[in-house]
Design a protein around this nucleic acid. Structure first.
Lengths: 331, 331
DNA sequence: TTGTAGGCGTTATCAG
DNA sequence: CTGATAACGCCTACAA
């Protein structure tokens, strides 16, 4: 079914049908009513590909992320999709994993779809390889990175200030008398590296410690269990320790369990802080004090920026949202 | 940049460029090499809309779900996307929520995109309204429902046998000497109703009880907390109770916490079973015995069926996967 | 107010 | 092996 079929049955030309569909004026009332009736009769929907071709605008946004099963990314995708839908955009979502080649291919795929912009979800896209791919394949197409930034004219970045956020966490622990915090990390990502920086800077600034201890979990091992094991090991290896900041709530959740199983009193003996302010922080017992990195706002801001850019407005390329601490029983 | 630009620079016609792009034979080696070089030089990607238009095939699949933030749905989307990508399909994902009108609109949107098939994720799409929308708007387009079924020639359904699965859970509890199970449910969905049926049937069959107690949580209230509260209330209202089956692991996770906080010994005093075999079951302490409803297989099967249908193969419209119980410490 | 004609970028058909 | 030419479905001048 095409506009020609409708036109024929209505006894008008295709242009008239097109005008009715697009609610343009300059159509006789009789004809308009007639055509509208047929449109409804057949539940006609114009072919978006054809329309995109002639209008040079697909109204599709590409969303690229490593893995949508990460609740973080799923939330990001959700808020973007909801926001963009309001403006008539639909989203093609691609899970690229972490390999550079897969990411490059995904970027090319999205370009071949002639998406009007691409959202990269996660700080791991803040990389030289991605930068190169954007330059080589995207030809100036708007790109926005959630929690990352690449210095190119067509790239926008919205970041959460996790570095200062983690520094605040250290200061919070300090006010509670904690002088021997440890940071447990998993994954060498720009975001995590900033967290570590915030951790170290705050401790130096407080003159608490010159070499703040950071523990890197083995990324090959199962996530929850490796955090659990590392936490228990830490209790033996570093008996002075009085607090732990985990790179994510999920890791902290495992840590809490390990501490409880070891008979450690939380937060009196060891305080715990996570990052993301996620469900895991909320449903843990005791509840986990968590650095809220403003995921929802981040996503919505990305979408809004995107819409503005697509509407031709001028927008700052780089933007930062302040994260804050949500205190629960673990501190 | 179009194939004409490439053609001009190569001194050949657009057809030749098209042939090279599509790796068709019948092109002089010299020309082929020349064109390939230019394609690479400009990182040319053919416009998928234009291609879709002439080939009458967009290579896009629509995925519709209520909310991708539900880990279930995110996983489903992930596996589908990964599987379909292998066959050159990309996915447009729409979060429709639960309202009929939003779902209807989403279905129309996907149709206007001329997706080649639609995946409906979740049993809530097994409804009269969805059926009507499919008939009215989709014009015979293949539809596949994950964990649901609608009796139409173009609709396929892959279901998890949660009903018998829950019956098995009841039997498992029975072998452990549990005679007074309660089912805690949240949400009046086809899937949940089958779980309840399985619960009741098994209890009648075991002649344990004529009116198996089912507790419905208030869907307006916050999910985790409402399950927590209901569980604690249950301990008072129904002191005989010796086991609880929750409609999902997430609810069970809250229940476990409530039981622990009430000083109840798990599983000796009260055994607990959840559904989904999700992360929540795994990270709970004690670990939650859970009915594995085969989400991953369900998703992959959906994708496979879809691919077969699109390739013109004949496939059974309705299919069921067997769920099984993953035992952990809570039973 | 209406219809005709041309074009969006690609592929397929058919002569040459 | 190659290149016109005509679609695909839609929109938009332009002409009537």
């Amino acid at each position: 079914m095409t506009i020609y079929d409708i036109a024929q049955e209505a006894g008008v030309s295709a242009s008239t049908v097109s005008r009715v569909i697009n609610k343009k004026k300059g159509v006789n009332k009789q004809n308009r009513i007639l055509v509208e009736a047929l449109l409804k009769k057949y539940n006609f929907e114009p072919n978006a590909s054809a329309r995109g071709l002639v209008q040079q605008s697909t109204k599709i946004i590409g969303i690229l992320m490593s893995d949508i099963r990460t609740s973080h990314h799923a939330e990001g995708a959700y808020f973007m999709e909801q926001e963009l839908k309001k403006y008539g955009y639909n989203c093609i979502i691609i899970n690229s994993g972490f390999s550079d080649s897969a990411r490059e291919e995904s970027i090319r795929t999205l370009f071949s779809r002639r998406v009007e912009a691409i959202v990269l979800v996660g700080s791991t896209f803040q990389s030289e390889n991605t930068k190169r791919a954007i330059q080589e394949y995207l030809n100036g197409l708007p790109v926005i990175i959630e929690n990352g930034y690449i210095n190119l004219p067509n790239v926008y970045g919205v970041l959460a200030d996790e570095q200062n956020g983690i520094s605040d966490c250290v200061r919070l622990l300090h006010t509670k008398g904690k002088r021997h915090p440890v940071f447990i990390n998993r994954g060498d990502t720009p975001s995590n590296n900033l967290k570590i920086l915030g951790f170290q800077n705050a401790l130096k600034e407080l003159s608490v410690c010159e070499n703040p201890p950071v523990l890197w979990l083995d990324i090959e091992k199962e996530e929850w269990q490796s955090s659990y094991d590392a936490t228990q090991k830490l209790l033996k290896d570093f008996p002075d320790m009085d607090s732990i900041i985990y790179a994510t709530d999920f890791l902290a959740h495992a840590g809490i369990q390990a501490l409880k199983d070891a008979g450690v009193c939380i937060p009196d003996q060891v305080a715990v802080i996570g990052v993301d302010n996620s469900t895991y922080a909320r449903i843990s017992s005791p509840g986990i004090t968590s650095l809220d990195n403003k995921l929802e706002q981040l996503s919505i801001t990305c979408a809004d920026i995107l819409v503005k850019v697509l509407q031709g407005e001028k927008v700052a390329n780089k933007m930062m949202l302040f994260s804050d601490i949500v205190e629960r029983e673990s501190t």
